[in-house]
Computed example of a mutant assay.
Amino acid sequence: MLYGIAAATTAFLLAAFLAALIRPCALRLGLVDRRRARRVPALGGLAVVGATCLVAFAGDWTAVAPLGTGVGELVAAGGAVALLGVVADVWRLKTRFLLFGTAVAAACVVPYGEFGIAGGVLGAAWIAFVAVAFKGLDHADGLAGTVGVVTAFGVGACAAAEVMDGLAVLLSVLAAALTGFLLHNWAPARIALGAAGSLFTGFVLAAAALITRSGYDPAASAGVLFALTALASADVLLVVLSRLLAGRPVLRRGPDHLAHRLRRLGLTSQRATVVLGGASFAGVLVAVLVHGGWVARAGATCVACVTFSIVLLLLRVPVYGPRNAVPTQVSGHLRVRSG
């Protein structure tokens, strides 16, 4: 118990310190998040990755808090995914390469003995999906970090219920590192997670959630896993449906994510993050209760139904301008004219 508190405190302070060091370096190198209107340096997620890995491996190396079977491999695979994210931050890798690379890493940590070959392949694909979905959540200040903290506590509670102490400690350290990073990432953000941090966070959370559901009924597990990551899944579903309906390329960036639409409805950036964080907490809470047997598995089904309903409602919020808009100059002011 005392080590868990000490480890979380160390991860919190270390992530906050590293983020402060990384920010000026990223600005000098011109590594900024191009999705934002202002210059926000990327690569901030390296602070989360570094703090999480250092504290986790320190506890394992000193034998004070051994990670346990498979958890060390999970952290190592997450580190490899973070390196892939660094490459994406620097050279703007396409999403399909991120999915493939993350799926390969996920295939190395899936417990095939519990899920079988077919289940393991599906599990690896799901982990890759969640990792890339968390990357999409980094479109708003503080959002990916907030959802990551909430999800880490939920998955950690599931791990603790299964007496997976090493995994529970890892998730508490990740939650603390993300909280320390949020000191710099809360709106207005001074640094962004970037692909390295968001992919790492989504990967570790998804893989840990899958491991905690080993040995459970596949249908019930699917509901719990969805509820744990409902917010990230909703963001992907909303974006894909919106772009398909608008006839736009699915992989092209656009102002059509969850937080973008809430801001269109009048919420400030901070309030949008709080609302979405609360929605994530609701889904995670139901997942934990279903996992512990306190709520019937129908609770996870309700989360799915509510999620899809909200996605359909938010699809009605206009986010795209005229398709063939071209700028024109009128009386010294810039105006958009439809072609």
Rank of each mutant, 00 (worst) to 15 (best):
C302Y: 14
R23S: 08
L13I: 12
N185E: 04
T9H: 00
A47V: 07
G70Y: 12
A222C: 06
A51D: 03
V336P: 11
V121F: 11
G180C: 04
A76L: 14
A103E: 08
A296V: 15
A140S: 14
H139V: 03
G79W: 02
V239R: 08
G4N: 12
K94E: 15
Q270S: 13
F226W: 13
A206D: 07
L267N: 00
L238Q: 04
A272E: 09
T69L: 10
A11E: 03
I191R: 02
E73M: 07
L46K: 05
D60Q: 05
V132F: 07
L265A: 12
F57A: 09
C53W: 12
V326S: 14
F281I: 03
R337F: 12
A107G: 11
G72P: 10
L98K: 13
R23K: 15
H260I: 00
G101C: 09
V311C: 05
P188E: 09
L245M: 14
C302K: 09
D165S: 11
H291T: 06
V110S: 05
A125T: 11
R35M: 03
A76T: 09
F129W: 15
T69C: 02
D256V: 04
T328R: 15
G72V: 10
T307V: 07
V110E: 09
G59Y: 06
G277T: 08
T273M: 12
C53D: 05
F226H: 08
G4W: 10
A304I: 02
G45L: 02
L2E: 11
A282R: 05
V40A: 10
L13A: 15
R335L: 08
V109N: 10
L183I: 13
H291L: 11
R38I: 13
P24A: 04
G156F: 05
L46D: 04
V290Y: 07
A287C: 10
A296K: 00
A272G: 14
A152V: 04
H139K: 01
T301D: 12
L228Y: 10
A76E: 01
A118I: 06
P188V: 01
L31M: 13
P318Q: 12
E73P: 09
L193M: 14
V326H: 10
R190Q: 13
R28S: 11
V110D: 01
F100T: 14
A196N: 00
V311W: 02
R34Y: 00
A133N: 06
L238P: 01
R35Y: 03
I22R: 04
W126E: 06
A19E: 08
V104K: 08
P327L: 11
V130C: 05
G254I: 07
A195F: 05
S331H: 14
A118K: 07
L182M: 13
A222H: 03
A58L: 14
V330D: 12
W294Q: 14
I117D: 02
A19C: 05
T146Q: 09
A196E: 06
F12C: 01
G145C: 08
V130P: 01
P24Y: 03
L182P: 13
Y3F: 14
S269G: 04
C158K: 00
L84K: 04
L334S: 13
A234P: 00
L313E: 06
V110R: 08
A47N: 01
V306A: 15
V303I: 12
S221T: 14
L258F: 02
F153P: 00
V49N: 02
V150A: 12
R92D: 15
I191H: 00
W186C: 03
M1C: 04
G123A: 11
V275R: 01
L27Y: 09
A246N: 09
G339Y: 00
G166E: 08
